[in-house]
Design a protein around this nucleic acid. Structure first.
Lengths: 174, 174
DNA sequence: GTCTATACCGCGATAGAC
DNA sequence: GTCTATCGCGGTATAGAC
Protein backbone atom coordinates (compact mmCIF):
# COMPACT_ATOMS: atom_id res chain seq x y z
CA UNK A 1 0.00 0.00 0.00
CA UNK A 2 2.94 2.29 0.68
CA UNK A 3 4.05 1.44 -2.82
CA UNK A 4 0.79 2.45 -4.43
CA UNK A 5 -0.41 5.33 -2.33
CA UNK A 6 2.60 6.45 -0.33
CA UNK A 7 2.76 7.09 3.39
CA UNK A 8 0.49 10.12 3.47
CA UNK A 9 -2.03 8.41 1.24
CA UNK A 10 -2.25 5.23 3.30
CA UNK A 11 -4.48 5.22 6.37
CA UNK A 12 -4.32 2.77 9.27
CA UNK A 13 -7.94 1.96 8.65
CA UNK A 14 -7.23 0.96 5.06
CA UNK A 15 -4.37 -1.23 6.24
CA UNK A 16 -6.58 -2.97 8.75
CA UNK A 17 -9.19 -3.59 6.11
CA UNK A 18 -6.64 -5.06 3.72
CA UNK A 19 -5.12 -7.18 6.46
CA UNK A 20 -8.50 -8.18 7.85
CA UNK A 21 -7.34 -7.07 11.25
CA UNK A 22 -9.13 -4.90 13.78
CA UNK A 23 -8.02 -1.55 15.13
CA UNK A 24 -7.15 -3.09 18.47
CA UNK A 25 -4.88 -5.70 16.94
CA UNK A 26 -2.92 -3.17 15.01
CA UNK A 27 -2.41 -0.81 17.91
CA UNK A 28 -1.50 -3.73 20.14
CA UNK A 29 1.39 -4.81 17.89
CA UNK A 30 2.49 -1.39 16.66
CA UNK A 31 2.62 1.92 18.46
CA UNK A 32 1.04 3.64 15.48
CA UNK A 33 1.22 4.38 11.80
CA UNK A 34 4.87 5.42 11.79
CA UNK A 35 6.17 2.25 13.42
CA UNK A 36 4.13 0.10 11.09
CA UNK A 37 5.48 2.01 8.11
CA UNK A 38 9.02 1.62 9.40
CA UNK A 39 8.62 -2.15 9.43
CA UNK A 40 7.18 -2.12 5.92
CA UNK A 41 9.92 0.11 4.53
CA UNK A 42 12.67 -2.02 6.06
CA UNK A 43 11.12 -5.10 4.56
CA UNK A 44 10.86 -3.51 1.11
CA UNK A 45 14.46 -2.35 1.36
CA UNK A 46 15.62 -5.86 2.19
CA UNK A 47 13.69 -7.27 -0.76
CA UNK A 48 15.17 -4.69 -3.09
CA UNK A 49 18.68 -5.57 -1.96
CA UNK A 50 18.05 -9.27 -2.34
CA UNK A 51 16.64 -8.85 -5.85
CA UNK A 52 19.56 -6.68 -6.90
CA UNK A 53 22.17 -8.96 -5.38
CA UNK A 54 20.72 -11.83 -7.37
CA UNK A 55 21.80 -10.03 -10.54
CA UNK A 56 25.09 -8.75 -9.16
CA UNK A 57 26.26 -12.10 -7.87
CA UNK A 58 25.60 -13.88 -11.17
CA UNK A 59 28.59 -14.57 -13.38
CA UNK A 60 29.78 -12.51 -16.28
CA UNK A 61 31.62 -9.28 -16.90
CA UNK A 62 30.81 -6.10 -15.01
CA UNK A 63 28.85 -4.79 -17.97
CA UNK A 64 26.90 -8.01 -18.24
CA UNK A 65 25.94 -7.97 -14.59
CA UNK A 66 24.99 -4.29 -14.68
CA UNK A 67 22.92 -4.59 -17.85
CA UNK A 68 21.32 -7.70 -16.40
CA UNK A 69 20.28 -5.67 -13.39
CA UNK A 70 19.10 -2.75 -15.51
CA UNK A 71 17.09 -4.86 -17.88
CA UNK A 72 15.51 -7.29 -15.49
CA UNK A 73 11.72 -7.41 -15.46
CA UNK A 74 10.20 -4.56 -13.51
CA UNK A 75 6.76 -3.23 -12.74
CA UNK A 76 7.82 0.03 -14.36
CA UNK A 77 4.53 1.90 -14.10
CA UNK A 78 4.21 1.18 -10.42
CA UNK A 79 7.56 2.81 -9.76
CA UNK A 80 10.14 1.97 -7.13
CA UNK A 81 8.81 1.04 -3.70
CA UNK A 82 11.66 2.80 -1.98
CA UNK A 83 12.27 5.68 -4.36
CA UNK A 84 8.67 6.87 -4.28
CA UNK A 85 8.98 7.49 -0.55
CA UNK A 86 11.39 10.35 -1.18
CA UNK A 87 8.40 12.34 -2.40
CA UNK A 88 6.57 11.81 0.86
CA UNK A 89 6.98 14.84 3.10
CA UNK A 90 6.17 12.96 6.31
CA UNK A 91 8.73 10.24 5.52
CA UNK A 92 11.45 12.74 4.71
CA UNK A 93 10.69 14.74 7.83
CA UNK A 94 11.03 11.73 10.15
CA UNK A 95 14.63 10.49 10.48
CA UNK A 96 13.41 7.09 11.62
CA UNK A 97 11.46 6.60 8.41
CA UNK A 98 14.06 8.14 6.12
CA UNK A 99 16.90 6.00 7.50
CA UNK A 100 15.95 2.72 5.78
CA UNK A 101 15.43 4.60 2.51
CA UNK A 102 18.85 6.19 2.81
CA UNK A 103 20.51 2.88 3.70
CA UNK A 104 18.96 1.05 0.79
CA UNK A 105 20.24 3.48 -1.81
CA UNK A 106 23.55 3.76 0.01
CA UNK A 107 23.96 0.01 -0.26
CA UNK A 108 22.96 0.00 -3.93
CA UNK A 109 25.42 2.70 -4.92
CA UNK A 110 28.22 1.07 -2.96
CA UNK A 111 27.52 -2.31 -4.53
CA UNK A 112 27.42 -0.88 -8.06
CA UNK A 113 30.65 1.00 -7.42
CA UNK A 114 32.33 -2.25 -6.35
CA UNK A 115 31.30 -3.94 -9.57
CA UNK A 116 32.58 -1.05 -11.64
CA UNK A 117 35.85 -1.13 -9.72
CA UNK A 118 36.13 -4.82 -10.56
CA UNK A 119 35.52 -3.93 -14.19
CA UNK A 120 38.36 -1.45 -14.06
CA UNK A 121 40.68 -4.00 -12.49
CA UNK A 122 39.94 -6.52 -15.20
CA UNK A 123 40.64 -3.94 -17.87
CA UNK A 124 37.04 -3.80 -19.00
CA UNK A 125 36.70 -0.12 -18.12
CA UNK A 126 39.28 2.64 -18.55
CA UNK A 127 41.27 3.79 -15.50
CA UNK A 128 39.68 7.22 -15.73
CA UNK A 129 36.19 5.97 -14.97
CA UNK A 130 35.02 7.00 -11.51
CA UNK A 131 33.17 4.11 -9.80
CA UNK A 132 31.18 6.24 -7.33
CA UNK A 133 30.05 8.65 -10.03
CA UNK A 134 29.10 5.94 -12.45
CA UNK A 135 27.28 3.99 -9.77
CA UNK A 136 25.24 7.06 -8.88
CA UNK A 137 24.44 7.59 -12.55
CA UNK A 138 23.20 4.04 -12.95
CA UNK A 139 21.00 4.23 -9.86
CA UNK A 140 19.69 7.61 -10.99
CA UNK A 141 18.75 6.37 -14.45
CA UNK A 142 16.58 3.69 -12.88
CA UNK A 143 14.87 6.04 -10.45
CA UNK A 144 14.46 8.71 -13.09
CA UNK A 145 13.26 6.16 -15.60
CA UNK A 146 10.40 5.31 -13.26
CA UNK A 147 9.50 8.99 -12.96
CA UNK A 148 9.47 9.53 -16.73
CA UNK A 149 7.48 6.36 -17.31
CA UNK A 150 4.83 7.27 -14.77
CA UNK A 151 4.58 10.76 -16.21
CA UNK A 152 4.06 9.33 -19.68
CA UNK A 153 1.75 6.56 -18.52
CA UNK A 154 3.96 4.17 -20.46
CA UNK A 155 7.07 2.07 -19.84
CA UNK A 156 8.69 3.39 -23.01
CA UNK A 157 10.71 6.27 -21.51
CA UNK A 158 12.11 3.88 -18.90
CA UNK A 159 13.26 1.46 -21.56
CA UNK A 160 14.74 4.25 -23.65
CA UNK A 161 16.66 5.66 -20.69
CA UNK A 162 18.03 2.25 -19.76
CA UNK A 163 19.02 1.49 -23.34
CA UNK A 164 20.69 4.86 -23.63
CA UNK A 165 22.71 4.21 -20.51
CA UNK A 166 23.71 0.74 -21.66
CA UNK A 167 24.91 2.20 -24.94
CA UNK A 168 26.97 4.84 -23.16
CA UNK A 169 28.50 2.21 -20.88
CA UNK A 170 29.37 0.00 -23.82
CA UNK A 171 30.83 3.05 -25.51
CA UNK A 172 33.41 3.55 -22.79
CA UNK A 173 34.08 -0.16 -22.30
CA UNK A 174 36.93 -1.57 -24.27
CA UNK B 1 3.21 24.12 -1.90
CA UNK B 2 2.69 21.35 -4.44
CA UNK B 3 6.45 21.27 -4.68
CA UNK B 4 6.99 20.79 -0.98
CA UNK B 5 4.07 18.68 0.12
CA UNK B 6 2.59 17.28 -3.08
CA UNK B 7 -1.03 17.28 -4.11
CA UNK B 8 -2.34 14.95 -1.42
CA UNK B 9 -0.40 16.79 1.26
CA UNK B 10 -1.64 20.24 0.30
CA UNK B 11 -5.04 21.36 1.59
CA UNK B 12 -7.16 24.16 0.18
CA UNK B 13 -7.19 25.72 3.62
CA UNK B 14 -3.39 25.86 3.73
CA UNK B 15 -3.35 27.45 0.28
CA UNK B 16 -5.80 30.12 1.36
CA UNK B 17 -3.73 30.89 4.42
CA UNK B 18 -0.54 31.22 2.39
CA UNK B 19 -2.28 33.37 -0.21
CA UNK B 20 -4.10 35.42 2.42
CA UNK B 21 -7.33 34.71 0.62
CA UNK B 22 -10.63 33.57 2.04
CA UNK B 23 -12.46 30.34 1.29
CA UNK B 24 -15.05 32.20 -0.71
CA UNK B 25 -12.49 33.84 -2.97
CA UNK B 26 -10.85 30.59 -3.83
CA UNK B 27 -14.04 28.73 -4.61
CA UNK B 28 -15.26 31.69 -6.64
CA UNK B 29 -12.26 31.59 -8.98
CA UNK B 30 -11.66 27.84 -9.02
CA UNK B 31 -14.11 24.99 -8.98
CA UNK B 32 -12.04 23.16 -6.38
CA UNK B 33 -8.69 21.76 -5.40
CA UNK B 34 -8.13 19.91 -8.68
CA UNK B 35 -8.64 22.90 -10.94
CA UNK B 36 -6.38 25.03 -8.77
CA UNK B 37 -3.70 22.35 -8.89
CA UNK B 38 -4.04 22.11 -12.65
CA UNK B 39 -3.27 25.80 -12.98
CA UNK B 40 -0.29 25.50 -10.65
CA UNK B 41 1.12 22.48 -12.46
CA UNK B 42 0.80 24.13 -15.85
CA UNK B 43 2.59 27.18 -14.55
CA UNK B 44 5.42 25.11 -13.07
CA UNK B 45 5.73 23.22 -16.34
CA UNK B 46 6.05 26.44 -18.28
CA UNK B 47 8.70 27.71 -15.89
CA UNK B 48 10.65 24.49 -16.19
CA UNK B 49 10.58 24.69 -19.97
CA UNK B 50 11.65 28.33 -19.93
CA UNK B 51 14.55 27.64 -17.57
CA UNK B 52 15.71 24.70 -19.66
CA UNK B 53 15.41 26.54 -22.93
CA UNK B 54 17.61 29.28 -21.53
CA UNK B 55 20.44 26.74 -21.36
CA UNK B 56 19.60 25.00 -24.62
CA UNK B 57 19.44 28.17 -26.68
CA UNK B 58 22.80 29.44 -25.47
CA UNK B 59 25.76 29.02 -27.76
CA UNK B 60 28.30 26.23 -27.73
CA UNK B 61 28.55 22.63 -28.74
CA UNK B 62 25.84 20.12 -27.94
CA UNK B 63 27.88 18.75 -25.04
CA UNK B 64 28.43 22.25 -23.68
CA UNK B 65 24.76 23.08 -23.77
CA UNK B 66 23.77 19.77 -22.20
CA UNK B 67 26.34 19.98 -19.43
CA UNK B 68 25.32 23.58 -18.87
CA UNK B 69 21.78 22.40 -18.35
CA UNK B 70 22.81 19.51 -16.14
CA UNK B 71 25.08 21.58 -13.95
CA UNK B 72 23.02 24.68 -13.54
CA UNK B 73 22.16 25.69 -9.99
CA UNK B 74 19.32 23.67 -8.60
CA UNK B 75 17.47 23.31 -5.33
CA UNK B 76 18.49 19.67 -5.31
CA UNK B 77 17.06 18.70 -1.94
CA UNK B 78 13.66 20.13 -2.77
CA UNK B 79 13.44 17.91 -5.83
CA UNK B 80 11.75 18.57 -9.14
CA UNK B 81 8.41 20.37 -8.99
CA UNK B 82 7.04 18.34 -11.84
CA UNK B 83 8.76 15.03 -11.25
CA UNK B 84 7.58 14.71 -7.65
CA UNK B 85 3.99 14.73 -8.85
CA UNK B 86 4.46 11.32 -10.45
CA UNK B 87 4.47 9.90 -6.92
CA UNK B 88 1.08 11.43 -6.17
CA UNK B 89 -1.65 8.85 -6.64
CA UNK B 90 -4.42 11.42 -7.06
CA UNK B 91 -2.45 13.26 -9.75
CA UNK B 92 -1.65 10.09 -11.66
CA UNK B 93 -5.24 8.92 -11.43
CA UNK B 94 -6.66 12.13 -12.92
CA UNK B 95 -5.86 12.52 -16.64
CA UNK B 96 -6.42 16.27 -16.42
CA UNK B 97 -3.71 16.61 -13.79
CA UNK B 98 -1.31 14.13 -15.35
CA UNK B 99 -1.47 15.75 -18.79
CA UNK B 100 0.70 18.80 -18.01
CA UNK B 101 3.24 16.54 -16.30
CA UNK B 102 3.37 14.29 -19.33
CA UNK B 103 3.69 17.22 -21.73
CA UNK B 104 6.51 18.81 -19.79
CA UNK B 105 8.69 15.72 -19.87
CA UNK B 106 7.68 15.03 -23.44
CA UNK B 107 8.89 18.45 -24.42
CA UNK B 108 12.14 18.05 -22.47
CA UNK B 109 13.02 14.72 -24.04
CA UNK B 110 12.20 15.98 -27.51
CA UNK B 111 14.30 19.09 -27.03
CA UNK B 112 17.27 17.11 -25.70
CA UNK B 113 16.97 14.68 -28.60
CA UNK B 114 17.11 17.60 -31.05
CA UNK B 115 20.31 18.88 -29.50
CA UNK B 116 21.89 15.45 -29.63
CA UNK B 117 20.84 15.10 -33.25
CA UNK B 118 22.57 18.43 -33.96
CA UNK B 119 25.66 17.07 -32.22
CA UNK B 120 25.61 14.06 -34.50
CA UNK B 121 25.24 16.24 -37.56
CA UNK B 122 28.23 18.36 -36.58
CA UNK B 123 30.31 15.24 -36.05
CA UNK B 124 30.51 15.75 -32.31
CA UNK B 125 28.75 12.45 -31.59
CA UNK B 126 29.10 9.14 -33.41
CA UNK B 127 26.43 8.15 -35.92
CA UNK B 128 25.49 5.18 -33.75
CA UNK B 129 24.24 7.32 -30.86
CA UNK B 130 20.46 7.22 -30.54
CA UNK B 131 19.09 10.70 -29.77
CA UNK B 132 15.81 9.58 -28.18
CA UNK B 133 17.53 7.05 -25.94
CA UNK B 134 20.24 9.43 -24.86
CA UNK B 135 17.73 12.20 -24.23
CA UNK B 136 15.71 9.89 -21.99
CA UNK B 137 18.87 8.91 -20.15
CA UNK B 138 19.77 12.53 -19.49
CA UNK B 139 16.31 13.41 -18.22
CA UNK B 140 16.29 10.27 -16.09
CA UNK B 141 19.63 11.07 -14.46
CA UNK B 142 18.26 14.41 -13.33
CA UNK B 143 15.03 13.00 -11.95
CA UNK B 144 16.81 10.06 -10.37
CA UNK B 145 19.49 12.35 -8.99
CA UNK B 146 16.82 14.22 -7.09
CA UNK B 147 15.49 10.97 -5.67
CA UNK B 148 18.92 9.79 -4.50
CA UNK B 149 19.73 13.18 -3.03
CA UNK B 150 16.51 13.38 -1.06
CA UNK B 151 17.01 9.83 0.19
CA UNK B 152 20.50 10.71 1.38
CA UNK B 153 19.51 14.10 2.75
CA UNK B 154 22.43 15.55 0.77
CA UNK B 155 23.03 16.93 -2.70
CA UNK B 156 26.09 14.73 -3.13
CA UNK B 157 24.47 11.77 -4.95
CA UNK B 158 22.87 14.18 -7.41
CA UNK B 159 26.22 15.78 -8.21
CA UNK B 160 27.89 12.39 -8.53
CA UNK B 161 25.21 11.12 -10.89
CA UNK B 162 25.44 14.23 -13.06
CA UNK B 163 29.23 14.10 -13.17
CA UNK B 164 29.11 10.42 -14.05
CA UNK B 165 26.76 11.14 -16.93
CA UNK B 166 28.89 14.03 -18.18
CA UNK B 167 31.93 11.76 -18.16
CA UNK B 168 30.12 9.08 -20.12
CA UNK B 169 28.92 11.64 -22.66
CA UNK B 170 32.41 13.03 -23.07
CA UNK B 171 33.64 9.49 -23.44
CA UNK B 172 31.54 8.89 -26.53
CA UNK B 173 32.10 12.38 -27.98
CA UNK B 174 34.97 12.76 -30.35
C1' DG C 1 -16.27 39.03 -5.31
C1' DT C 2 -15.52 38.10 -0.67
C1' DC C 3 -17.06 36.90 3.93
C1' DT C 4 -18.54 33.67 7.82
C1' DA C 5 -21.02 29.65 9.12
C1' DT C 6 -21.89 25.14 8.60
C1' DA C 7 -21.85 20.21 6.95
C1' DC C 8 -20.01 15.80 6.22
C1' DC C 9 -16.40 12.71 6.21
C1' DG C 10 -12.29 10.19 7.21
C1' DC C 11 -7.87 10.23 9.71
C1' DG C 12 -5.17 8.74 13.67
C1' DA C 13 -5.45 7.47 18.19
C1' DT C 14 -7.37 6.13 22.79
C1' DA C 15 -10.52 3.71 26.26
C1' DG C 16 -12.16 0.12 28.30
C1' DA C 17 -14.97 -4.19 27.82
C1' DC C 18 -14.36 -9.04 26.83
C1' DG D 1 -4.93 -10.10 22.05
C1' DT D 2 -8.88 -8.49 19.90
C1' DC D 3 -13.25 -6.08 19.95
C1' DT D 4 -16.37 -1.87 19.71
C1' DA D 5 -17.13 2.84 21.02
C1' DT D 6 -15.66 7.23 21.07
C1' DC D 7 -12.75 11.44 20.55
C1' DG D 8 -10.69 15.61 18.49
C1' DC D 9 -9.04 17.35 14.35
C1' DG D 10 -8.61 18.87 9.81
C1' DG D 11 -9.85 18.12 4.86
C1' DT D 12 -13.02 19.58 1.18
C1' DA D 13 -16.96 21.73 -0.12
C1' DT D 14 -21.47 24.32 0.11
C1' DA D 15 -24.80 28.04 1.74
C1' DG D 16 -26.19 32.26 2.02
C1' DA D 17 -25.31 36.95 3.89
C1' DC D 18 -23.04 41.23 2.60
Amino acid sequence: MLWERGYVGTSPKAIQLAAEAGQGSMYHHFSGKAELAKAAIERSGAELRAAAEEQFAGGGTATERITGYLQRDRDVLKGCRIGRLTADPDVMADPVLRAPVDETFGWLRTRLAEIIAEGKKSGEYPAGLDPEQTAATIAAVLQGGYVLARAAGSAEPFDLAVQGLVSLLKGVAS
